[in-house]
Amino acid sequence: MPGGGPEMDDYMETLKDEEDALWENVECNRHMLSRYINPAKLTPYLRQCKVIDEQDEDEVLNAPMLPSKINRAGRLLDILHTKGQRGYVVFLESLEFYYPELYKLVTGKEPTRRFSTIVVEEGHEGLTHFLMNEVIKLQQQMKAKDLQRCELLARLRQLEDEKKQMTLTRVELLTFQERYYKMKEERDSYNDELVKVKDDNYNLAMRYAQLSEEKNMAVMRSRDLQLEIDQLKHRLNKMEEECKLERNQSLKLKNDIENRPKKEQVLELERENEMLKTKNQELQSIIQAGKRSLPDSDKAILDILEHDRKEALEDRQELVNRIYNLQEEARQAEELRDKYLEEKEDLELKCSTLGKDCEMYKHRMNTVMLQLEEVERERDQAFHSRDEAQTQYSQCLIEKDKYRKQIRELEEKNDEMRIEMVRREACIVNLESKLRRLSKDSNNLDQSLPRNLPVTIISQDFGDASPRTNGQEADDSSTSEESPEDSKYFLPYHPPQRRMNLKGIQLQRAKS
């Protein structure tokens, strides 16, 4: 015994090295194993092979420090690593049964499904019991997946119906949107047309105001020219009257000059006056001389005659003075006559000038009245044309509004008919989907599995289990394997941990 101590140590070291070499393959693929292994699927088989106990299973599945599946799978690998070579062998058998691809990844061999460990530990009855539990578990999982698949199909059909409904609603909204954009385009076109009409109206108003201003300026210029013409006519008439007055005065002077006595007659009258003065002096001298030589009687007679002569001279002087006064009065009367005649001529000139001015103003008033009548006639014609244009424009607008209203009513009726057609199509689609759903539900009910399987069917299934373990590994792997896509769409199922009653199965096998 003492001599065998070193050999035992060498043997233990060799086993430990082999164990480390075995687990080295697992550690190399630890990331892939932790990512894809579900500990809840492996722990029943590991407990059946007595590699882990209930406490280890509870620690792996329910520990609060292991929230994710990767953490739980890593903890399970750590626990199996502590179990040595047996933990490695049982772990590979569980991978061979549940995850053939991972088994091939770790060992590089094809899975054979021999279950040597569980046969050694529990015997064939334990293997049968384990396989029966796994089959029931798989059936329950398949039923749950079928239910989930039916629910998802129903949800899918519902979503398809909602999608069709949303599509129809979208078509309806597109119809309304198209109608909205069309009405918006019509409104924009009408606004552009309105702005264009306003611009045209403004341009016409500006043109009309400009023409009116030009016409008023032309009328004012015409009036100024007419006033200048009238003033020139007035000056012409005044000059004609002055010329006529000057002509009359010149004719009067000419007549006075023609009626003036001649120079010879004046000289002859002056000679006669001198001769008479000479004779008068001679007679006076004779009379003076006679007075001195005459007697007293003759002197008395001469005195009487002288007195008579003096009286006659006085009378004559009075007559001469009277004649002079009369001549002066006649001259003054002639001057007054000439003055009055001049005033008369001036008044006649003024009267004729005023008459011509009156005629001029009368003509001017007639011209202004004619212009006013023409302006009123043009204004009435413009008003009439404007009223006709406004009436025609309003009539066109009324007809346009009428046609637009008819078009809008027809478009609304068309839209309502399209919407009604879309709604009826939606109703038809809904009815078809309901009919299809009812038909599929009836087919699913016919094809669904019963909840409680008979014992004979279970025994028959387990009677055929042994050949399947040898020759149909691919079928078992397809039913027991969970793909990543299934984990996305289906909830994980945790079967209840219970042991099955095998009395009925044993009785059935005894009868057979």
Rank of each mutant, 00 (worst) to 15 (best):
Y88N: 09
Q141M: 14
V119G: 14
A144M: 09
I118R: 14
Q55M: 07
N29P: 02
M132E: 06
G84N: 04
V51P: 09
Q141S: 14
G126H: 15
F91L: 12
T128Q: 07
R35A: 05
P6E: 11
T43K: 07
P6D: 13
L42R: 02
K16H: 15
A21K: 10
P44F: 02
D20M: 06
V135W: 09
G84F: 07
Y36G: 06
G108R: 03
N62S: 11
T128K: 02
V90G: 13
P39Y: 08
T14L: 03
R30Y: 04
M12P: 11
Q139E: 09
P111T: 15
K137M: 08
V119D: 15
Y11G: 08
V119N: 15
G5H: 09
F115R: 12
L95G: 09
W23Y: 03
F130G: 14
C28P: 01
D56P: 09
R86P: 01
E96G: 11
H31M: 08
Y11Q: 11
I136V: 05
E122R: 05
E7L: 09
P44I: 06
R114P: 14
K69I: 05
N25L: 02
G74A: 02
K69M: 06
K50P: 09
G87Q: 00
G4F: 11
D53N: 10
S116A: 06
L138V: 15
Q48G: 10
I37T: 03
I70D: 02
M8K: 13
L33N: 01
L138G: 12
Y11K: 03
N71V: 08
G126Q: 15
A144Y: 11
L76C: 01
K69A: 04
E18A: 11
E96F: 00
L105A: 01
Y36M: 14
T82H: 11
E121W: 12
G4I: 13
N133C: 15
Q55D: 12
G108S: 00
E19W: 15
G87A: 03
H124Y: 03
G126C: 14
L46K: 09
M8H: 12
M8Y: 13
D53F: 03
Y36L: 10
E93T: 14
V90N: 10
H129W: 15
L102T: 00
M8T: 11
E7S: 12
L76D: 01
I118S: 10
W23V: 00
T14R: 10
E125K: 04
L66M: 03
F97I: 05
K41Y: 03
T43E: 04
K50V: 08
Y11N: 08
L138K: 11
E54C: 02
N71S: 13
K143H: 12
V119F: 15
Q139F: 04
V51W: 09
A63M: 06
D20N: 13
Q140I: 13
Y11M: 13
L92S: 14
Q140N: 11
G123P: 15
Q85P: 11
R47V: 07
R35W: 05
I70F: 14
D17C: 09
L138M: 14
D56E: 10
Y11L: 10
K69N: 05
I52T: 09
Q139S: 14
E24C: 12
V26P: 06
G4H: 08
C28Q: 04
V89R: 02
D58V: 06
V60I: 14
G108V: 06
N133K: 13
P67M: 08
L42I: 07
K83E: 01
L77M: 10
R35N: 04
C49R: 13
L61R: 02
P44D: 02
I37N: 03
E54F: 10
L131P: 02
E13V: 09
L102Q: 13
L42V: 12
H81I: 10
V26M: 03
V106G: 01
Y36V: 14
R113L: 03
L33G: 00
L76I: 02
K50W: 06
P6W: 13
E13I: 11
M65F: 10
E7K: 11
L77Q: 02
T82G: 10
L33K: 01
M12V: 12
I79T: 02
Y36E: 03
K109W: 00
H31K: 04
E125R: 08
N38K: 02
K137Y: 15
R75G: 02
L76F: 01
D9Y: 11
D78W: 03
C49L: 10
E125P: 13
N71Y: 04
L131C: 02
Q139T: 11
M142Q: 13
Q48E: 12
L42Y: 01
N133H: 02
N25E: 14
D56V: 04
T43Q: 03
A144I: 13
E18Q: 09
E101D: 03
E27I: 05
M32W: 01
P39S: 04
D20E: 12
K145N: 13
E27M: 04
A63V: 00
W23L: 02
I70H: 07
N25F: 04
T128F: 12
K145R: 13
M132I: 07
G87S: 03
D10H: 12
G84W: 03
G126L: 14
I52L: 12
T14F: 04
Q85M: 08
P39N: 01
S68N: 03
V135S: 07
D146K: 11
A21V: 06
L76S: 01
Y88Q: 12
E7P: 09
L61M: 02
K109R: 13
L46F: 12
H81E: 07
M65P: 03
N71C: 07
D10Y: 11
Y36P: 02
K137D: 02
P44N: 05
F91K: 01
D17T: 14
W23P: 01
S68H: 03
E110T: 07
M65D: 01
V26C: 00
K50R: 10
E24V: 10
L61S: 01
E54N: 09
Y11A: 15
N38P: 02
D58K: 12
E54S: 10
N71W: 02
S34K: 02
D20Y: 06
M65N: 07
H124E: 13
K41W: 08
P6R: 12
I37E: 02
